[in-house]
Design a protein around this nucleic acid. Structure first.
Length: 353
DNA sequence: AATTCGGGGTA
DNA sequence: TACCCAGAATT
């Protein structure tokens, strides 16, 4: 039996029934692919339901405002996906007359669609014979064929792209691509792959040579930077101050609180001696009604140490170069917040009057 | 070619 | 902890 037939057969019998697999609407498939970037099905699926319900068509998404889209994305992470998705919808309305472009090449022009997503949409929605190579596919191919080239180097990516397209089932590229990914997600997992249930194990190089823990090869990344965020919660009975993050930084376009950021840890005592503090408040007469314990929030490249400092609204003095929003607590429900901010709002009931 | 974008699951 | 997830954009 041909390899690709084995994979297809396995997929037929083992595939999960997922909502974006029961549609041929390229818009829904596009949404699912963006949500699932660096995101497990289990984490993304409810966002998918909510998102397509809130934005049932390209047109509704294109006409939405950024804050609404970010709010729908809140908690999912990598928020540029949400901003780019909206931009992509606007782009498709103007450049492609409201239709998702039907070829790999054109799809690459759409904001937020890169090589993988273009290949996925082209193959699944339009039956184009192009290999969609995600983390699962890299892993399955590396193990099955015993490829020792790093999957995250340019050279390695070129090699894998070539091989993946040779292996592709050009008659049914969409289901084949999904089958390979599904195999990676359910059987050929990063740790402790379920080789006894794998339809390919008898021909798998890594399985035969005990290389499962060594493949795929990945160039080891990154050191984490630590940042210290001292957030000021400036509120009275009905109102509260938020900051809109406008810089090219984490959580762009989302709302946290007025903040002093430092590169080293400071005591509140020393923090109050900084220039920024002097600008925030009318110098000495600041009433610190409450100070939270430190919270560490981990991102892929950063470690954020957060402390919340409660201050009466009347003590707060807005800074010139920042975007602040004094809002009614009731209305703040609709703002998109980063995870640690949302968590603290919930924990402390900050929006309750 | 390397870095920067989140948040959660898993061992 | 460390690694990884249906990666893309920016530098």
């Amino acid at each position: 039996m041909l390899l690709r037939n084995k994979i297809q057969t396995w997929y037929q019998n083992n595939r999960r029934d997922l909502p974006w697999r029961n549609t041929s609407n390229p818009y829904f498939i596009w949404i699912s692919e963006i949500i699932l970037q660096q995101t497990r099905v289990k984490q993304g699926i409810n966002y998918y339901y909510r998102f397509v319900n809130l934005f049932p068509s390209i047109e509704t998404l294109a006409q939405s405002d950024e804050e609404t889209v970010l709010k729908a994305w809140q908690g999912l992470g990598y928020y540029s996906r949400a901003r780019n998705l909206r931009q992509g919808a606007i782009q498709i309305m103007t450049q492609y007359k409201g239709r998702v472009p039907g070829t790999y090449r054109e799809l690459l022009n759409v904001k937020g669609i890169g090589e993988y997503t273009a290949a996925a949409i082209a193959s699944i929605a339009f039956n184009e014979a192009v290999a969609a190579i995600d983390g699962n596919v890299y892993r399955v191919l590396a193990r099955f064929l015993g490829i020792k080239e790093a999957i995250n180097s340019s050279k390695g990516k070129n090699i894998f792209r070539k091989i993946a397209n040779e292996q592709l089932d050009k008659k049914q590229p969409g289901t084949y691509n999904q089958a390979l990914m599904e195999l990676g997600a359910l059987i050929c997992t990063p740790k402790k792959p379920d080789c006894t249930n794998c339809p390919l194990s008898n021909q798998c190089i890594a399985y035969k040579n005990q290389l499962l823990n060594y493949l795929p090869v990945k160039i080891s990344p990154k050191t984490k930077r630590t940042r210290y965020f001292y957030y000021f919660i400036c509120a009275d009975k009905n109102q509260i101050v938020f900051q809109k993050r406008t810089q090219n930084d984490i959580w762009r376009s989302m709302f946290d609180f007025p903040c002093i950021e430092t590169q080293t840890e400071l005591t509140i005592e020393n923090l109050s001696k900084t220039d920024e503090w002097q600008l925030f408040f009318l110098a000495k007469k600041v009433e610190l009604s409450k100070i939270s314990p430190k919270i560490t929030h981990i991102l892929s490249h950063q470690r954020i140490v957060i402390q919340f400092i409660h201050v009466p609204l009347r003590n707060f003095k807005a800074l010139h170069n920042k975007v602040y929003l004094l809002t009614q607590k009731k209305e703040a429900q609709q703002l998109p917040h980063p995870k640690p901010i949302e968590n603290y709002i919930e924990k402390e009931n900050l929006l309750k009057e």
